[in-house]
Design a protein around this nucleic acid. Structure first.
Length: 423
RNA sequence: GGUGAGGUGGGUGAGAGGCCGAAACCAACAGUUUGCUAAACUGUCGUACGGGUCAAACCGUACCGAGGGUUCGAAUCCCUCCCUCACCGCCA
């Protein structure tokens, strides 16, 4: 949610940002500004009225203490009429606040100046591409055949136990998951991230805090009896750690990492996108989150990007980094880098990480703030990224490193996996 | 699941219709003292919205778990809901 001050101070910036996103309802901006002015007017009126009521009440108390009952009664009558007015005003004010909120919440974040113009994924800018494409002339099996061949994952069993999109990892397949999770977490911890092991369900306040509610409830699994939501990403519980908190500047940056399974309903997905490990209802992911001063957040974002990039390199996979265009960026992001890995048998790029700076769009709603050197309270900037999402990494590891003798495990992972090959 | 107690500022905790945005203590921050550390002392020390200002100072309003009610006036009384803690039961 954009801070209201932004509209008063820099309307042009908002309009330009919306244009870059191809966001059509630009009239919302003027509506918001108009309501804001009216709202403030009303507040001044209402506050003044309340002030006179308060003063009168105090007066009554003193008069009663002095035994001047008649005078007190006279003032009481006066207060009664003021109260009528303030009741009306307060109701109008609340209505207006709600109206303003409803409008403002519909606006997406303002893209960073480096975000390219564009409407579709084709307009995303390839920042870097690196790694080598393996020679699969000897054998080119897609991962869903490799998982069967080596008995790593049983998709049908998952369907029996739960439903489609809930694979069962078996034997070396299960061990590979555990190895990747440990490797990713340790890698992040070494870079100064604090490991968090959060709940896998959150309450409504948390879901609201990171913006899953009110709009995206269809994306989450909901435990109705207790009104808890299964997390669609670790970002939800981890970012909410700092909901309604004010931290000292000396505590910044706050860097957290967490492994969690992620639960997504993914209603409406179909076809090759959901084949094998490409899209699941439950998957594993290791997330990194940072909270930092506004002036340092883009430096931090670049740091996170190179952090994730090195991790991908260590897995010996071909990857590319995209700077998402205005039309393809998530609603809450100001700048997003997507990481894609080349799936050599499917011959397509798969997204394995999305790393974004949300500036104060998230923290405004979360009320995650810090106190600066002058004692002033400001909103933090929040950033997060995957490092990494497991299923597609697994898919690419299997496909890209397949040989006739088995699947080669990258060096960096061997100590965690305990073998050099899957046979 | 049963029974009981309770939700007050960063923490502990007092307040029981007006003198309360809230004592005291602790923590934190700044300073004085000091060879260093410690101690001692002094001061500062909630948030939001709005007004005001170049910026401050300052002023108003709201907030004592949430929502409603009683009253001229509510942290304090009443109602509803939520949550936490303790003990018992069950259980990984």
């Amino acid at each position: 949610m954009l801070p209201i001050q932004l509209f008063r101070q820099n309307k042009e910036l908002v309009l330009e940002g919306l244009k870059k996103r191809n966001f059509k309802e630009t009239e919302l901006v003027d509506q918001i500004i108009a309501i804001d002015e009216k709202r403030r007017q009303l507040q001044v009126e209402n506050d003044n009225l309340a002030a006179s009521i308060n003063a009168a009440s105090k007066n009554i108390g003193q008069l009663m203490a002095q035994g001047k009952k008649d005078e007190a009664e006279a003032i009481k009558a006066e207060v009664a009429s003021h109260k009528e007015q303030t009741k009306e005003l307060a109701a109008k004010l609340a209505e207006m606040e709600q109206e303003q909120y409803d409008l403002i919440i519909r606006l997406p974040n303002i893209p960073h100046s480096s975000v390219p113009f564009g409407k579709t994924p084709e307009d995303n800018e390839v920042v870097r591409q690196a790694g080598t494409r393996p020679d699969l002339s000897a054998q080119k099996l897609p991962h869903w055949e490799l998982t069967e061949k080596y008995n790593l994952i049983n998709f049908e069993l998952g369907t029996k136990l739960t439903g489609s999109g809930f694979p069962v990892y078996i034997g070396q397949g299960a061990k590979l998951q555990r190895a990747l999770i440990s490797y990713f977490l340790n890698y992040n911890i070494d870079a100064g991230y604090m490991e968090i092991y959060p709940p896998y369900m959150v309450n409504e306040d948390s879901a609201r805090g990171t913006g899953q509610l009110p709009d995206k409830e269809g994306q989450m699994y909901h435990a109705v009896a207790d009104n808890y939501y299964l997390i669609p990403t670790a970002e939800v519980p981890v970012t909410n750690v700092y909901r309604d908190e004010i931290v000292k500047e000396s505590d910044l940056p706050i860097k957290m990492t967490a492994y969690t399974p992620c639960f997504r309903r993914e209603a409406g997905s179909y076809g090759k996108d959901v084949r094998g490990l490409n899209r699941l209802h439950q998957f594993d992911k290791v997330e990194i989150v940072q909270l930092i001063q506004p002036e340092k957040s883009y430096e931090a974002l670049e740091g996170m990007v190179s952090h994730v990039e090195k991790l991908l390199q260590s897995l010996e996979l071909e990857y590319r980094i995209l700077r998402l265009c205005g039309g393809d960026m998530g609603f809450t992001s100001a700048l997003t880098y997507d990481f894609e890995v080349y799936s050599a048998a499917q011959e397509r790029w798969l997204e394995v990480s999305s790393t974004s700076n949300f500036e104060n769009f998230q923290t405004n709603r979360l009320k995650a703030r810090y106190k600066d050197a002058n004692g002033k309270t400001n909103l933090l900037h929040s950033l997060n990224g995957s490092s990494l999402a497991l299923p597609r990494i697994v898919a690419c590891l299997l496909e890209n490193h397949q040989t006739l003798d088995g699947i080669r495990i990258p060096k960096a992972l061997q100590a965690y996996f305990g073998a050099e090959m899957i046979k």
